[in-house]
Design a protein around this nucleic acid. Structure first.
Length: 481
RNA sequence: CGGGGCGUAGCGCAGUCCGGUUAGCGCGCGUGGUUUGGGACCACGAGGUCGCCGGUUCAAAUCCGGCCGCCCCGACCA
């Protein structure tokens, strides 16, 4: 209830907790349509800040936004064999239009590779047209069996980047560049530490050569795949005949990538930082960073306190702080505190007659602790408070992840770990699908990634943790969302 | 599609086993007043096809039959 009592949600009723946080923070709601989600202004506000930040990072690296159609002719999907096999079972298909049965059914995009490559084929003639670096912000539909607010809904918002390059190496570089952008965004903005790496074949994107991913550990010790980038090789280029003339006069298919993150990231924020009081929003992504709660006893006090509050509201807004004033009458301060805590606002500013008399305000953090600050120092104090809270959320999350990770696991240990508390398990992996399947059957855990060098705890494990055969790489196992 | 739970006011629930005045409670909502340093209080008030259809009965939220929907757990997945 109070900030001192904030508790990590227990794994056994995590689903219930998760839904409660979303409802209390007014982030989203169920829709009348099964599996779909209504994102409320407060939830969308977080997404907007994510959008703005990522969009800036994409543009800095030379990407441009474009928009492609929602409908994809069914035959387009079928052009890439693995792709259609992967996505056909979960598509929504429009068979009627204008009251007539359509000649060719239209698939509501589950991802836009196919419709985009139809354009790429027209636009790309020469190596001078490359690289082509596009991104679109869009909604897509995947008919999932089971859905969960933010994490897996039938329709969802995302960004999908699609790029075409002259060489394998350039496409590879692009996939890794975006992976790094994702990682930085998740760590620096969401305060959510991730492990990056390459996916095994069984988790690879349908139609890709290689899939890279950012994996984060949530408070129930399940892994969240927070973002993926794909090196598509020439698979889609060949399927859609996207060719270009090379500098030496030859003809080649382009090498391409695709990558995306979705509103699932909002779920990541909730599950990374939330506590029993509700949402804890990192300051950099908080639609409301500060809420001013005025306190008074008499009508006179009220007038004075409100005047100062309104002045602060104006000043802080002008200096770029996202701040709101809770001037509701007939509600006691405690009730307001409780409400804003549930909504995850990182900092609360309490201003009462005593504070006004001493030209100060009380700065209370969502993550705990109160200090008294002179009004003249307020702006500077808030800025440093945001930085500290942001940093603290990140280090707490790293610490928690490390406490829930084990290294150099062997078979029995892996079973015990995954069927108990669970978390990230690092160990050697032989690369066989058979081992992956056996582990999944026994523990429900899958290989999340073969971690990049900086995330490896053992650079070259000799043996597979499961079968004891020679290891191809260290792997990170976890139960996943 | 399997296993479990639930459907009664905007939200959370009681009542159902054992049928019987006008279907209740808490929160929220409206009006008026008193309040405001950690979830305020008083008074009055609005709000319900008891998920749907059928059956039994003098009488059904309650018993019987069927259907629908939602949530949680598995299989699918970002």
């Amino acid at each position: 209830m109070s900030q001192e009592r904030a508790v990590t949600p227990r794994a056994e009723d995590f689903s219930q907790w998760y839904n409660d946080v979303i409802m209390r923070a007014e982030l989203a709601d169920y829709s009348p349509v099964r599996g779909c989600m209504v994102i409320r202004p407060r939830g969308y506000g977080i997404w907007e800040l994510m959008q703005r930040t990522l969009d800036g990072m994409f543009k800095e690296t030379g990407h441009q936004n474009a928009y492609f159609p929602l409908f994809i002719p069914q035959s387009f999907l079928a052009k890439e064999a693995e792709h259609v096999e992967g996505f056909a079972p979960e598509t929504a298909v429009v068979t009627m239009g204008g009251g007539k049965v359509l000649d060719e059914p239209l698939v509501v995009r589950p991802t836009s590779e196919t419709i985009i490559y139809a354009s790429f084929a027209k636009w790309i003639q020469s190596y001078r047209d490359l690289p082509l670096l596009l991104n679109q912000w869009a909604n897509i539909v995947r008919w999932e069996m089971r859905t969960r607010l933010f994490l897996r809904t039938t329709e969802f918002l995302w960004q999908e980047g699609h790029t075409a390059h002259a060489t394998d190496a350039e496409a590879q570089e692009e996939a890794l560049l975006i992976l790094d952008i994702y990682r930085r965004f998740m760590e620096e903005w969401m305060a959510m530490p991730v492990v990056t790496g390459v996916k095994t074949d069984s988790e690879r994107f349908a139609g890709a050569l290689r899939t890279y991913a950012c994996e984060a550990l949530m408070q129930d010790n399940k892994a969240l795949q927070a973002g993926t980038t794909h090196h598509l090789g020439q698979n889609f280029a060949k399927a859609f005949d996207v060719t270009f003339q090379t500098a030496d006069g030859g003809v080649d298919h382009v090498w391409s990538t695709s990558w995306g993150v979705s509103t699932r990231l909002v779920g990541g924020v909730i599950m990374s930082h939330g506590d029993d009081t509700g949402l804890v929003c990192p300051p950099r992504l908080a639609p409301t960073q500060v809420v001013i709660v005025p306190i008074w006893k008499s009508g006179e006090d009220r007038a004075v306190v409100m005047e100062v509050s309104q002045r602060l509201l104006r000043q802080l807004r002008e200096s770029g702080v996202r701040v709101e004033l809770d001037d509701r009458d007939g509600m006691k301060p405690g009730a307001k505190y409780y409400e804003w805590e549930g909504k995850g606002v990182p900092v609360r500013l309490e201003i009462g007659p005593r504070d006004v008399a001493q030209d100060q305000a009380v700065v209370a953090r969502r993550t705990g602790g109160k200090t008294t600050v002179k009004l003249g120092d307020l702006h500077r104090t808030l800025k440093s408070t945001f930085d500290e809270v942001q940093q603290q959320l990140y280090s707490t999350a790293v610490e928690r992840r490390e406490q829930n990770s084990i290294r150099n696991v062997r078979k029995d240990q892996l079973i015990e770990f995954m069927n108990g508390r669970a978390g990230f398990a690092y160990g050697g992996f032989c690369g066989s699908e058979r081992c992956e399947q056996e582990i999944k059957d026994l523990t429900k855990a899958t290989v999340r990634v073969l971690p990049d060098p900086e995330f490896r705890s053992n650079p070259s494990p000799a043996e597979c943790a499961w079968c004891g055969m020679p290891s191809i790489s260290e792997a990170v196992w976890a139960k996943a969302y």
